[in-house]
Design a protein around this nucleic acid. Structure first.
Length: 241
DNA sequence: AATGCGGGGGG
DNA sequence: CCCCCAGCATT
C-alpha cells in the first residue's frame, strides 16, 4: 500500500504528506509551549499527564500535575496508597473515574506488569508497556492515551488522534469528514498515520506538533489561518473559509 | 450508536 | 449562554 493511500479517504500524494510534516514540525520547534510533561520521558509521569488532560484544559492540569507527582512520584508509591487519598489529590479536576482507574492500574502493573509484557528484571521498578496495544488494555487507557504514552514516553512510532488532531487533519485533508462522527474516526486515524515521519524520535515531535497547532492555531472556534504554516496545503483554507 | 462523567473558560 | 476541552467506559 503506497504512502498516502488511506482507507476510503481521498488519496494524498507523498509530496503533500512530506511538506505537511516538515512545515508542521518546523513550526513546532519555534512555537511550542514549555509544558512540564514535555520535559520528561518517565512513562508514569507521562501517563498521569495524559489522564489528567482527558477532556481537561492544559491550564487546569498545570495546577494539579506537579502537586500530584510530588505526592505520588512513582507507580509503587501510588499503588501503596489508599484509593481515597488518590481521589482526594484529584479533587477539583473532575472525572474522578480517571483517578480510580489510575490507582487500579498502578496496582495491576506493580503486581503483574513484568510477567505480562516481559519487562527486563532490572531494578525491581514497575514499568508500563511501550506498545499501544498493551497499553490499551489498562483501565482508563483508550486509543488516544495508548498512542500518546507509546509516543511521548517511549518514543515509539505510534499514531494518536485527540480532538485537536482530528480537527486539524479533517480541515487540512478531508473537509467532508466530521471528527465527531464515529464512522469517520477510522479514516481520520488512517490519514494521521499516513502523515507520520519515519522514526520514533521525529514522531514524538510530530505528534506534539499536531496537537499544539490544533490547540493554538487551528482551534475549534477560531481559525488563525494568517499564522498557520499549513495554509498553502489546507483544503479548508483553499475553499476560502 | 448513545450516554454519563466535572468543572472552568472562551466567543 | 452555550460550546469546547490531550477521552473513556458502559449500555
Amino acid at each position: 500500500m503506497p504512502a498516502g493511500r488511506t482507507h476510503g479517504a481521498p488519496r494524498i500524494d507523498g509530496e503533500t504528506l512530506l511538506a505537511f510534516g516538515t512545515r508542521l514540525r518546523a513550526w513546532y520547534r519555534r512555537n511550542a509551549r514549555d509544558l512540564p510533561w514535555r520535559a520528561t520521558r518517565d512513562p508514569y509521569h507521562i501517563l498521569v499527564s495524559e489522564l489528567m488532560l482527558q477532556q481537561t484544559q492544559v491550564s487546569r492540569v498545570m495546577e494539579f500535575y506537579p502537586r500530584f507527582l510530588e505526592r505520588f512520584p512513582t507507580l509503587e508509591v501510588l499503588a501503596a496508597a489508599r484509593e481515597t487519598h488518590v481521589v482526594a489529590a484529584w479533587e477539583g479536576l473532575g472525572y474522578y473515574a480517571r483517578a480510580r482507574n489510575l490507582h487500579k492500574l498502578s496496582r495491576a502493573v506493580v503486581r503483574e506488569g513484568a510477567a505480562a509484557w516481559g519487562d527486563p528484571p532490572s531494578n525491581g521498578r514497575a514499568t508500563l508497556p511501550p506498545d499501544a496495544e498493551s497499553l490499551r488494555r489498562l483501565p482508563g487507557v483508550g486509543p488516544y492515551t495508548a498512542g500518546a504514552v507509546s509516543s511521548f514516553a517511549f518514543e515509539r512510532r505510534a499514531a494518536l488522534v485527540d480532538t485537536n488532531v482530528a480537527r486539524l487533519i479533517t480541515r487540512v485533508f478531508a473537509p467532508r469528514l466530521d471528527a465527531r462522527r464515529a464512522r469517520d474516526q477510522k479514516r481520520i486515524w488512517a490519514i494521521t498515520e499516513a502523515t507520520l515521519p519515519r522514526t520514533g524520535k521525529a514522531t514524538w515531535v510530530h505528534n506534539q506538533a499536531l496537537m499544539e497547532l490544533g490547540a493554538l492555531v487551528c482551534t475549534a472556534r477560531v481559525k488563525r489561518c494568517g499564522v498557520c504554516p499549513l495554509r498553502r496545503l489546507c483544503k479548508t483554507y483553499q475553499r476560502r473559509m
